[in-house]
């Protein structure tokens, strides 16, 4: 189960971080920072819930 969750976390992180990069290139720095923060929180939160 943990392996599947890890794969999902990695996939969603890169997908979201990629979108943050796109926003940065489009000069939307605030949006890019917000989306990147979202991507980072996807990596952090499982350690307080499913990986506990």
């Amino acid at each position: 189960m943990n392996t599947t969750i890890t794969f999902v976390v990695i996939f969603v992180f890169f997908y979201t971080a990629g979108f943050a990069v796109t926003l940065w290139r489009e000069k939307n720095k605030l949006g890019s920072a917000a989306v990147f923060l979202l991507a980072v929180s996807i990596v952090i939160t499982p350690f307080f819930s499913v990986f506990r």
């Binding site: 999902v8 605030l30 929180s41 819930s49």
Partner: peptide, 24 residues
């Protein structure tokens, strides 16, 4: 709020985050 026009790209991030927060 953050001037993101194609906000559909953050749907997977939102849903995943909601699952992890809801499981706390």
């Amino acid at each position: 709020l953050f001037n993101i026009n194609h906000f559909e790209y953050i749907i997977p991030a939102f849903s995943t985050l909601i699952v992890f927060i809801g499981m706390i």
